[in-house]
Nucleic acid binder design. Structure first.
Length: 571
RNA sequence: GCGCCCAUAGCUCAGUGGAUAGAGCAUUGGUCUUCGGAACCAACGGUCGGGGGUUCGAAUCCCUCUGGGCGCACCA
C-alpha cells in the first residue's frame, strides 16, 4: 500500500523542478516540504504549505503555489489540485480510486502497511531488563508494553527485530535476594526471623520469598541449613525469572534473547572492555577523581583506596565515574558498557533501549563509554519512559520492591484484562509522568477506550456472522455503491502507514494507540448509518457495504495487533 | 545548586513551525421496529502555566520565571 504523503512529496518535487526548467520559478535548492493530512474537508485530503519557498524563490507564496500546480502531473489517485491563499496547495483524492482501495486493504490483510523503511536492517529492542528480585510491578510494566509495541512497529516498518532482556544477575541486589531467601528458608525450618541492622536495610519482604522458601524445603529438606547466600541466590533467580517470564507472556510479550550479565564476567568481556578503554586513554587509577574539587577531598569517598575511573568528563559528563571499586569489584557501569559493546558487535543497525527515567544519567555514561571505544553511539537509541505513580483511593502509593509494597502486573491483569493493561500503559507519550489510577482502571472498565476500539472489530465480525446466516456474501461486490460515510473512513485508513512511519521515526509507540481510538471513533458512526442487512438496502449496495466492512475489519485488526492486543469476534 | 522530563477543556491526555487548538471521561439534552446500545447525535467547556524573543506564521523553537516528577554513590 502506498504512503500517499511520500507520493505527493515526490510529485511536488518534480513539479518544482519542471517549473524551474520552464523558467516559471526561479532556481533554488528544493527543501523538504511537509505534506499533511488536512483537518477540514474544504482544505482537501492532503495539503502542503509552500510559504517556506518564498524566501529562496524570491517570489510571493501564492504565485509559487500556482506555478507548482501548473506543472504538477496529476497521479491517478488524485482528483483535484488547487491553491489556497496565502500559499497552500490542497489535494483531493479521487473517489473511484479510493473505493478501489477496499480491495487492496483486503488483499494486504495482516500485512497492511508493511513498510520498507527498515528493509534489510536489523533492529534490537532491549526492554524490561528488571533485576529478578521481585515480581513485575506496574511501574516496570509501562516500559515492557512500550518496548514490545515498539518492536511490533519496527517489524511493521520492515526491520528484522530481536527482543532482548538484559538480566542483571551479578550485583549486590541479587546477593541480598539470596540472603533474604536463606533467612526465609531457615524461618520455614523453625528458626525465627531475626534481622541484623544491615539485613534490615537489604531484606526483601515480599511474600513470594516465603512461597519460594516453602518450595525449597520441599525440594531439599534441611540440607541447605549451613549454606551461604549463593545457592539461595541461584534458586531464587531461577524461580523469579520463571515468574516474570510467565507474567510477560500473559500480555503477549516474549523475548528472543535473554542476556545474562554474569556471562560478561564469565567470559572476561568486562576486563577486555576495561583494557580497551585504558588503551584509548580514558581510564586512570586514583583515590579521588583527578578533576575533583577541593570540597570533594574530605567527603565520604576519601580514604577508601584506589578505584579505577572513567574520564567521562571528556564527553561533558559532570564528573568522572568509577568502573572498578577499590575493592576490585566492578560497578554496574563497566558491565553495562561491555554489554553495549557486545550488542553493537552483533551487527545491529539499530539498538533501542527502553529505560526508566531514573536511569538517565547512567545511560549517558554508558553512551560516553561506547563513544570512547570508537563505536557508533548513534545506533543506540534510548526511549526514556517517565515513571508511573500509582493512585488508589485518591492517594498516591509509593512503590518499593524491597518493602514488598507494590502492585504487581499480575494483580492488575487479574482485575482488568491483558488488553486493557496494554492499552492503558501505551496510551500516553513516554515523556509524561503517568498517574495510574487503579480504581479507575478496575472499576470503570466499561468506559475504557480499549473496549470501544475492540467493539468496532466485534461489530464487523458480527455482521459477517449474520450475513452468512442470511446467505449474503460480498463476492463480486461493485464498490461504486459505496457512499460518503465509507469514504471518510477510508481516507483515515491511509494515515495508518504514516502513523507507523512516524512512530518509528520518533520512537513514539503511543501514536498507534491514539490512531486506533480515532479510527474506532470514525467507525462507529459509519456502522450506525451504513446498514447492510436491512430490507430497504438494495442487494448490490449491501454487497458493496459488506465488502467495505471486511476492509474495515482488516484495518482494525491490524491496529489492535500492532498494539499487541486481541481482535475479538465477540465480547 | 546542576542535569533530564512535564505544565493544553472540570478530569486524564493527543497535537510533525502552518489555515478556525482536538479526543476520551464527566455534565446536560436528544436518537432506537431491522447487522449486538460496550452504540449514535448535539450542547457545554480553552489567557495552550506567566513574561520576553525568533518567524510571513509559535501550543510547538530560544531565553527567563513559577510550579510538579525523576536523577545527581566506590547502589543496581
Amino acid at each position: 500500500m502506498k504512503l500517499l504523503h511520500h507520493e505527493l512529496a515526490r510529485h511536488i518535487q518534480d513539479a518544482i523542478a519542471a517549473a524551474q526548467a520552464a523558467g516559471d520559478l526561479t532556481r533554488f535548492d528544493i527543501p523538504d516540504l511537509e505534506i499533511r493530512a488536512s483537518k477540514r474537508a474544504e482544505q482537501g485530503d492532503y495539503n502542503v504549505a509552500v510559504m517556506p519557498l518564498a524566501k529562496p524563490a524570491k517570489m510571493n507564496p501564492f504565485e509559487i503555489a500556482k506555478q507548482i500546480t501548473l506543472h504538477f502531473i496529476k497521479p491517478d489517485f488524485l482528483a483535484v489540485v488547487e491553491v489556497a491563499p496565502p500559499g497552500y496547495i490542497n489535494f483531493r483524492l479521487d473517489e473511484a480510486w479510493l473505493r478501489q482501495q477496499v480491495e487492496t486493504i483486503i488483499a494486504e490483510g495482516d500485512d497492511l502497511f508493511a513498510l520498507e523503511l527498515g528493509k534489510g536492517k536489523r533492529a534490537q529492542v532491549e526492554f524490561v531488563s528488571a533485576n529478578p528480585t521481585a515480581p513485575l510491578h506496574i511501574g516496570r510494566s509501562r516500559g515492557a508494553v512500550v518496548g514490545d509495541t515498539m518492536a511490533r512497529l519496527l517489524q511493521a516498518a520492515g526491520f528484522d527485530v530481536e527482543r532482548e532482556y538484559y538480566f542483571n544477575n551479578a550485583g549486590a541486589q541479587m546477593r541480598n535476594l539470596g540472603n533474604s531467601l536463606r533467612l526465609r528458608y531457615l524461618e520455614v525450618l523453625g528458626q525465627p526471623l531475626r534481622l541484623s541492622d544491615d539485613e534490615k536495610k537489604t531484606f526483601y519482604q515480599g511474600e513470594y520469598l516465603i512461597t519460594f522458601a516453602e518450595q525449597l524445603v520441599e525440594d531439599v529438606g534441611e540440607a541447605w541449613r549451613e549454606h551461604d547466600w549463593q545457592p539461595f541466590k541461584k534458586y531464587a533467580e531461577v524461580k523469579m525469572f520463571e515468574m516474570i517470564r510467565q507474567t510477560l507472556a500473559r500480555i503477549d510479550i516474549h523475548h528472543d534473547v535473554f542476556f545474562n550479565e554474569n556471562s560478561l564476567y564469565d567470559s572476561g568481556a568486562i576486563w577486555e572492555t576495561l583494557d580497551a578503554l585504558d588503551k584509548r586513554g580514558y581510564v586512570y587509577k586514583a583515590a579521588l577523581p583527578e578533576n575533583a574539587e577541593p570540597e570533594d577531598m574530605d567527603d565520604a569517598n576519601a580514604g577508601k583506596g584506589e578505584a579505577v575511573w572513567f574520564r567521562s568528563t571528556q564527553f561533558g559528563d559532570a564528573k568522572d565515574r568509577v568502573l572498578v571499586k577499590s575493592s576490585g569489584e566492578p560497578t554496574y557501569t563497566l558491565p553495562d558498557i561491555a554489554y553495549h559493546q557486545n550488542k553493537l558487535a552483533r551487527g545491529f543497525d539499530l539498538c533501542v533501549n527502553v529505560l526508566g527515567a531514573d536511569h538517565y544519567v547512567q545511560h549517558q555514561v554508558v553512551r560516553f563509554g561506547v563513544q570512547s571505544l570508537g563505536l557508533d553511539a548513534s545506533k543506540v537509541h534510548v526511549i526514556l519512559v517517565q515513571l508511573v505513580a500509582l493512585m488508589r483511593g485518591g492517594e498516591i502509593i509509593r512503590m518499593s520492591s524491597r518493602a514488598g509494597n507494590f502492585e504487581t502486573l499480575d494483580d492488575l491483569i487479574d482485575q482488568t484484562s491483558p488488553d486493557a493493561v496494554r492499552y492503558l500503559l501505551l496510551n500516553r507519550s513516554t515523556d509524561t509522568n503517568m498517574v495510574f489510577d487503579l480504581d479507575l482502571a478496575v472499576s470503570q472498565t466499561n468506559e475504557n477506550p480499549v473496549y470501544y476500539i475492540q467493539y468496532a472489530h466485534v461489530r464487523c465480525a458480527g455482521i459477517f456472522r449474520e450475513a452468512a446466516a442470511r446467505g449474503v456474501t460480498d463476492d463480486g461486490a461493485d464498490l461504486s455503491h459505496l457512499g460518503e460515510a465509507e469514504m471518510r473512513f477510508l481516507r483515515r485508513v491511509f494515515e495508518l502507514g504514516e502513523v507507523i512511519e512516524l512512530s518509528v521515526h520518533h520512537m513514539e509507540p503511543h501514536r498507534i494507540a491514539f490512531y486506533a481510538l480515532e479510527l474506532a471513533n470514525l467507525f462507529h458512526p459509519v456502522f450506525d448509518s451504513v446498514r447492510v442487512l436491512h430490507s430497504e438496502v438494495p442487494p448490490e449496495t449491501a454487497k458493496a457495504r459488506l465488502r467495505f466492512f471486511r476492509a474495515a475489519q482488516v484495518v482494525l485488526k491490524r491496529a489492535l495487533h500492532l498494539m499487541g492486543m486481541s481482535a475479538p469476534e465477540v465480547m
